[in-house]
Design a protein around this nucleic acid. Structure first.
Length: 973
DNA sequence: GTGAATCCGATTTTT
DNA sequence: TCGGATTCAC
């Protein structure tokens, strides 16, 4: 049996498998059979009776890798079972903690919070945490994710709240010696706040019996450090420890390994050139400095590659050497140039294209050709992208040629229409007044109510102040109601009946059974999906299955599983930014894989296409975390050179080495942006092409054309429509909403679907009223006391939409304070306004632009248009910028120009935050021209009934109609 | 050659 | 919204 274990091993592999005692660093390049070595080593240790299975601990990162390793060991070791511990770091620590929870005053039934649950937890305790500047009352949750990411990174680095606090005290000392350093002072304020919040957050977690993923590691560390007897016990138990993908370990994980492996029987396997998880804490220094930690470590290098051609190996090697000297080869003085077993030649091609669609066409075309010539299967192909968003054009090109593909990258489960349909139904069950959801449900594929009938009902509901559901019920019973056709009325009746029939069930049944009853029995929707052969329908089925799984998870933690509470839970998840991946149609089907490089790690394909290789995309632009750990706290040894570029280069290395036989590198000049793109630096590094021969781009004809195109093609105005809709009234709001997204405009201004008021709107309105009243009095030179001003504010206050009672109270106080600041400022600058709260209306090419000025002051050089804002602002530079870019003030300036026949002297935004920060801008003719173009674009679009979705960047994320928008969530590329 | 204005384009993911 | 890269103005 031992012979079998040692069969077909090369010299180095043999050495690693049979290596006896002490620390071992197995440097295993790509495709050198690393996992084979680890699994055979485990089997060998058992077979040779060097260790009992229970004495072996093997650690990996993902459940998938652990399961695979376990399976391979199972096959090698002919016992019915083995009790070697093969698991992920986290599940190992989980077990450690549950066995010894009480020792570190942790409840043994602690629950692990997933990321969205962490966000929910943080939000629930938002006002219990000592947050100050990081919790602006206008948007208290704005920094939440950044803070949690920071804490998670802190745990990667094994930084306790106490250590964080100690660091802040260091900072404070430094301030005392150098009291003029403003940046340092600001840094101290921020870090001081973070240290407090960190400590309190950990305390709250502990109190409630929660831990997060990072805690699993750090708490396990604490357990072992504080309890030598426990540590000794585990050291005795795990006589052999093996770690896979060692380059992905973080600082804390290595600390854990060092403790456990007190006896030095620690074998780690990895490849520094494949370290691509820096952003989640991986410390490449662990592998680079392993020998520093274990000077007597045996070093074995696997160099024989069983995957790729020599050309691919040589090219990727050329590339990766640009990371020197931050590489193991240099640091440890070893040689790890890979040697191919394959004798194939000519395997790398680089192609550059004019446009992205040419590039995508080429890839699809090439796949088709190779398929024909070589007779392989689709699953032999992979298209690798740097980021998920780049996948789209390639998927479309493959669709055109009927090439099957699978792409697992897509998030956005909640934005799928089948999920929205199901959720709309549940929301309606939880609240029959939820017009938005009924509106969506009626238009969904289940009922397919025509949009005209739906619009009529919606408008009737608004006019009569009845809920949409009430109106549906009336319409169902009244023949000829609103002249709706008989056919549509049947649909309406069906909807009303279904809802009425499901209501009692929703009281008595759990969320899962209610939804099942509705989708399966009542509407037979699930049935129709499962009978369908269409790919989309099958996927819809999978997605719904995912929703049911989510409902299951809720059932586990909820005290009482009924729809309204599930809706609360779901809302919290969505608000926390949770949006799981959509389901896969079928994993077994023969299809081309489209993957991000991160997802492709560890996989191999005969033919690989590495696409989108232009600077800015790959290497991607470096972006810092919004809150990052202070360098002084980072225990990982920071490298010397441009770290981001090194990491991207390793990523490129990983990508190249996925290919067995052929590798295509492609790029294009035109990716839809205005400027042509330069080919990636990595292409030159990998392939021996002199830079000069790569076309460094004159502008492509398309790009040049696009420069002259200010907006997407202007639709021609239909004569008939223009005569009918003679004059268009446009307010600033309408213009802004249309530009944000035409469909949003449609929802707000045409369908007038009401939405719940946001707390910032309530706050802003109350402040505005108070200030308006003040200004009106000022205009007639009446001075009023501050108390009266604040009284107006109070009268206009409504307790709606605030996160908690506490939030509302703090915000209310902030409002009073803001008004006091305003009052004081006015006292000092006792200018009498020229006019206050004046409505205007100007005609511009058959469009009537309407609005009102908050206030205009008169100076010697002209008018000053003033508008008041309550949004957050950093400093006056940002305020100036906002003023300059303000579409609203631009429109006001235009109106001013038309009314007074001259430009205003300047425009001002007064931000009450609550101190007063004033942004100023002097409007120019050029700015007015831009505004006119915008107005014209909006007017034309509205006249032509053009309401297809076209969201501005990030518009969907904040859109109140996101839950009902039938178009998949997508921000403008 | 340098500072200011303007213009683009917008990650990766596991436990 | 935000920051960097490019272009513009001098």
């Amino acid at each position: 049996m031992i012979d079998k274990l040692l069969q077909n091993l090369n010299e180095e592999q043999y050495e690693a498998v049979t290596f006896d005692q002490g620390p071992l660093l197995l440097v295993a390049g790509v495709g050198t059979g690393k996992t084979t070595v680890i699994t055979r080593r485990i089997a060998y240790l058992i077979a040779e009776k060097k260790a009992r299975p229970a004495e072996i601990l093997a650690l990996t990162f993902t459940e998938k890798a652990a399961a695979e390793m376990e399976e391979r060991v199972d096959i090698l070791v002919p016992y019915g079972y083995i009790d070697a511990q093969i698991s992920t770091f986290h599940s190992f620590c989980d077990r450690l903690l549950r066995e010894n929870a009480l020792l570190i005053s942790l409840t043994p039934d602690f629950r692990i919070l997933t990321e969205p649950e962490q966000v929910i937890f943080f939000k629930d305790h938002l006002f219990d945490l000592p947050l100050k500047s990081l919790r602006p009352l206008g948007n208290p949750i704005s920094n939440l994710r950044a803070i949690l990411t920071l804490f998670s990174r802190a745990k990667d680095e094994d930084i306790t709240p106490q250590e964080y606090r100690a660091y802040v005290e260091q900072l404070q000392k430094r301030i005392k010696t150098d009291s003029n350093d403003e940046a340092l002072a600001a840094e101290f304020m921020l870090q001081d706040e973070l240290a407090d919040v960190y400590a309190k957050y950990q305390q709250l977690l502990l109190e409630k019996g929660f831990v997060d993923f990072g805690d699993l590691i750090t708490l396990a560390l604490r357990l072992l450090r504080d309890h030598p007897a426990i540590l000794a016990r585990y050291q005795r138990q795990f006589r052999y420890i093996l770690v896979d993908e060692f380059q992905d370990t973080n600082y804390a994980q290595f600390e854990l390994l060092k403790l456990l492996a007190g006896h030095h029987n620690l074998a780690v396997a990895g490849d520094d050139d494949q370290s691509i998880y820096k952003f989640r804490g991986a410390a490449i220094s662990n592998i680079l400095h392993f020998q520093r930690q274990f000077p007597d470590a045996k070093l074995i290098v696997l160099k024989i590659n069983y995957r790729s051609t020599q050309e691919i190996l040589d090219s990727s090697y050329r590339l990766i050497q640009n990371n020197n000297p931050d590489r193991l080869e240099v640091r440890s003085g070893i040689e790890k140039r890979l040697i191919a077993v394959s004798t194939d030649v000519k395997s790398i091609n680089y192609r550059s294209f004019e446009t992205l669609s040419d590039e995508a066409d080429f890839v699809a075309e090439k796949i088709a050709t190779i398929m024909k010539e070589k007779g392989c299967s689709y699953r032999d192909f992979a298209v690798l992208v740097r980021s998920n968003i780049q996948a789209d054009p390639f998927l479309r090109a493959m669709n055109l040629r009927h090439i099957p593909w699978r792409f697992s990258g897509s998030r956005g489960l909640y934005d799928r229409w089948e999920i929205q349909t199901a959720i709309s139904f549940l929301r309606l069950m939880a609240d029959p007044r939820d017009n938005l959801s009924l509106h969506f449900l009626a238009g969904s594929p289940i009922y397919q109510l025509e949009s005209e009938a739906l619009a009529l009902l919606t408008s009737y509901s608004r006019r009569t102040n009845k809920t949409l559901l009430q109106v549906f019920r009336i319409a169902a019973q009244t023949e000829g109601f609103l002249s709706i056709s008989r056919e549509e009325r049947e649909k309406i009746k069906k909807i009303a009946d279904d809802i009425s029939a499901m209501m009692p069930t929703s009281r008595d049944e759990t969320t899962g059974s209610l939804l099942y009853e509705y989708l399966m029995v009542r509407t037979e929707y699930l049935k129709s999906l499962s009978c369908s052969q269409k790919r989309d329908d099958l996927q819809a089925m999978q997605n719904l299955a995912k929703l049911f799984a989510l409902i299951e998870r809720f059932k586990e933690i909820a005290k009482y599983d009924r729809v309204p509470w599930f809706i609360d839970y779901l809302n919290a998840l969505i608000e926390a930014g949770d949006n799981p991946a959509v389901g896969e149609a079928d994993w077994d089907e023969d299809a081309v894989s489209l993957l991000t490089i991160h997802q492709a790690k560890g996989l191999e394909f005969t033919h690989v296409f590495l696409v989108g290789l232009v600077s800015g995309r790959f290497p991607s632009r470096h972006r810092r975390d919004p809150l990052s750990l202070p360098d002084e706290l980072i225990k990982d040894i920071l490298p010397t050179a441009d770290f981001h570029q090194q990491e991207e280069r390793r990523l490129f290395y990983v990508a190249m080495t996925r290919a067995k036989k052929s590798l295509y590198l492609t790029s294009a000049l035109d990716y839809g942006g205005k400027r042509p793109r330069k080919p990636s630096l990595f292409i030159c590094e990998a392939v021996d092409i002199p830079i000069a021969t790569i076309k460094t781009a004159k502008r492509s004809p398309l790009a040049t054309l696009k420069d002259h195109q200010i907006r997407p093609e202007k639709p021609l105005i239909d004569e008939h429509i223009i005569s009918e809709a003679k004059r268009l009234n446009l307010s600033y709001r309408q213009i802004d909403d249309y530009l944000t997204c035409p469909l949003k405009y449609h929802y707000i201004h045409r369908e007038k679907i009401p939405i719940r008021q946001h707390h910032t709107v309530i706050y802003g309105a109350a402040i505005h009223r108070a200030i308006r009243w003040y200004n009106i009095n000022l205009l007639s030179q009446r001075h009023i006391p501050l108390e009266d001003l604040q009284k107006i504010f109070k009268q206009n206050w409504r307790a709606e939409g605030f996160l908690t009672r506490e939030h509302e109270e703090m915000r209310f106080q902030e409002g009073l304070c803001a008004l006091a600041c305003f009052y004081e400022y006015q006292g000092k600058n006792s200018k009498i306004p020229h006019l206050v709260e004046r409505r205007f209306s100007v005609i511009e090419k058959n469009n009537r632009i309407i609005g009102h000025f908050d206030r205009i002051d008169q100076s010697d050089e002209g008018g000053i248009i003033i508008d008041y804002k309550t949004s957050e602002i950093k400093d006056s530079a940002q305020a100036d910028r906002r003023t300059k870019e303000s579409r609203q003030l631009g429109i006001y300036a235009l109106a001013y120009q038309r009314i007074f026949n001259q430009l205003p002297q300047r425009i001002e935004l007064h931000f009450l935050t609550p101190q007063i920060i004033i942004g100023q801008f002097v409007p120019t003719e050029k700015r007015l021209e831009q505004i006119l173009i915008d107005i014209e674009y909006v007017a034309t679009g509205i006249r032509n009934g053009q309401f297809d979705p076209d969201p501005e960047y990030l518009a969907c994320t904040y859109c109140a109609y996101r839950g009902i928008c039938p178009y998949p969530y997508k921000d403008k590329e």
